[in-house]
Design a protein around this nucleic acid. Structure first.
Length: 126
DNA sequence: TTGTTGATTGTTGGA
DNA sequence: TCCAACAATCAACAA
């Protein structure tokens, strides 16, 4: 799996920093994948167990190994959250691609929709 | 002082 | 269909 990682490592981030200024401020950021959602929690736990370890590289490796050791059931909650974020990202991207669509609808004053995504009621899936 | 690097995986978007 | 770019994090080092 390192085969692909090799390409990304370095080049991608380098481009990010350089082109960051050229990025569109209105463009929504990509939603964190299930792995990143897991990492958010994992980092906190790792820091508690290893307060001396502050190297993100080390935490990243540890998180990667832990992630692989997790079962689908363990990843489920993280994947579910990632999907939710992905759905919100889709809406933002749609608004970004069609900014007039939202204005034309006059949703500006009506901040309805969204929000309720927390308890949309689809929880009873399992 | 400010900016980049280091590593991880997943997801998305473009070609 | 496949590849490249980008998402968070933060100490540490370099210019």
């Amino acid at each position: 799996m390192k085969a692909k990682a090799g390409s990304r490592a370095g080049d991608s981030r380098l481009a990010v920093k350089k082109s960051k200024a050229e990025k569109d401020p209105n463009k929504p950021k990509r939603p964190p994948s299930a792995f990143f959602v897991f990492m958010d929690t994992f980092r906190k736990e790792y820091k508690e167990k290893h307060p001396d370890v502050k190297q993100v590289s080390v935490i990243g490796k540890a998180g990667g190994e832990k992630w692989k050791s997790l079962s689908d059931a363990e990843k489920a909650p993280y994947a579910a959250k990632a999907e939710k974020l992905k759905a919100e990202y889709a809406k933002k991207i749609d608004a970004y691609n069609n900014p007039q669509a939202g204005e034309a609808s006059g949703d500006s004053d009506k901040s309805k929709s969204e929000v309720n995504d927390e308890d949309d009621g689809s929880e009873g899936d399992e």
